[in-house]
Simulated scan of single mutants.
Amino acid sequence: MELWYTEKQTEHFGITAKIRETLVTEKTQFQDLAVIDTIEFGRMLVLDGMVMTTVKDEFVYHEMVTHPALFTHPNPKHVLVVGGGDGGAIREVLKHPEVEKAVLVDIDGKVIEYSRKFLPEIAGMLDDPRVEVRVNDGYMHIHEHKNTYDVVMVDSTEPVGPAVQLFERGFYQAIFEALKEDGIFVAQTDNPWFKADLIRKVQKDVKEIFPVTRLYQANIPTYPSGLWTFTMGSKKYDPLQVDETRIPELDTKYYSPSIHKAAFVLPKFVEELTK
C-alpha cells in the first residue's frame, strides 16, 4: 500500500509527496506537529498540515532569510531569530564570524526537540556557544528588548495560530524599537500567487515604520506556488547599495554575491504589490 502526504495549499490546490515513513506525530501545546520521511524530499517537518522545511530544499529558505540582511548590515554582532525552531536560520547566521551572539526564541519547544532528533543537518548548530535558545513567546521577547539587536529575523509559519500576531503592524513597530539605531529586520512574507493581499499589507505597514523597505524572492519548491517572498525593513542600510564584489563566498548552495542583488529584481506582478 502506498502512503502519500498532501498539503492543501489553498481550498482548490495542493502538493503531494510519497511517504517512506512517519517518524513522529504529536499535538503540542500550540500546533499539530509531524516529521515524515518522504521519498522525494527526505525528512520533512510539518506544522498544522503545512510543510515547514525538508532536508532537500531547506537551504534555499534558510540562506535567503539570513544572508541578505547580514551582508547589508556592516557589523551584525547581535542577532535575533523569532521562530525558526528547526535551527536552520541559526546555522546560517553563525557563518558570519562577526556575529557574537545569536538568540533563538521559539514558542514551541517541541519543534526544537524534534528538529534536534530528526533534522540534525538543520538543527546541528543550536548547541554552539554563540547561541542562546529560549522557549518563549517571540512577540513578547521583542516587546521586552528595546535597542538590543543589530538584525532581527522573523522565521515564522504562515499567519495562522500563534503566528498571526507576527504579521501585525504593532509587531513591526516593536521590532523597530528592539533594533539598534542602524538595525535591520527581515521576515518571510509568503507567496504572491495565493497571498498577494498579505504581501501588500505587510509592505504598507513596514514602509510606514522603516525608512528602507525592500521585497525580495527565492524559489522554494515545497512552499505554496514555489515562489516565496521576504520583506526587509532597514533603519539605515539599503541592500541594493551593497557592493557585491565585497561579499565573501560562503559555504552556501543558493545565496551568492550575484543572487544578493538579483533576488530584489521582481516580476512586474510582484513589484506591483510593493506600491
Rank of each mutant, 00 (worst) to 15 (best):
D243H: 01
V65Y: 03
L215H: 02
E92W: 01
P159V: 11
N75L: 14
K201A: 12
T54R: 02
Q165A: 08
G14N: 07
K101P: 10
A102W: 07
E132F: 07
L70M: 15
A196D: 04
N75T: 11
E132R: 12
V60E: 04
H62I: 13
M1A: 13
V270C: 03
K207I: 05
G226S: 15
K236M: 15
V55W: 02
V154L: 09
P74G: 10
N147S: 10
G88V: 05
E58W: 01
Y223K: 09
H73N: 09
F210L: 14
R20L: 09
V186C: 01
K261I: 06
H260E: 02
I90K: 00
G14E: 10
P211R: 04
V202N: 09
K146R: 06
M125W: 06
E177I: 00
F30K: 11
E100W: 07
N136P: 00
L94M: 04
V164I: 15
T252K: 05
L266E: 00
V164S: 03
S256K: 00
P76M: 11
A196W: 01
A196Q: 03
P224G: 11
K201C: 02
D238R: 09
L47F: 04
A178E: 10
H12L: 11
E132D: 14
Q173C: 10
N136T: 03
T229K: 00
V51E: 07
F59N: 04
Q31W: 10
Q188E: 06
A17I: 07
A102C: 13
A187S: 15
A34R: 15
V55P: 01
H145G: 06
R116L: 11
K275S: 04
E100P: 06
F30Q: 11
E98K: 06
Q29K: 15
A102Y: 05
T54I: 09
E7A: 02
K201N: 10
I122S: 08
V82N: 04
V93L: 13
G183Q: 10
E121V: 14
H260C: 14
M50E: 15
D128Q: 09
D128I: 14
K261T: 03
P76Q: 08
H73C: 10
E132A: 14
L80R: 08
V152F: 00
V265K: 02
K56V: 12
T229M: 13
P239W: 01
N75A: 14
A163T: 02
K18A: 12
T10S: 11
E113G: 00
F264E: 00
P120S: 14
H67R: 07
H143N: 10
K18N: 11
L273W: 00
E121H: 07
Y172R: 06
E158Y: 01
Y139Q: 07
F13I: 11
K117S: 11
V65W: 02
E272L: 05
P162L: 03
F194N: 08
A69K: 02
D57E: 15
Q241R: 12
I36F: 09
V131C: 12
V81A: 10
P257E: 03
E132M: 13
F59H: 14
A163V: 06
S115L: 10
K110Y: 02
M140W: 02
L215F: 01
A123L: 12
E58A: 09
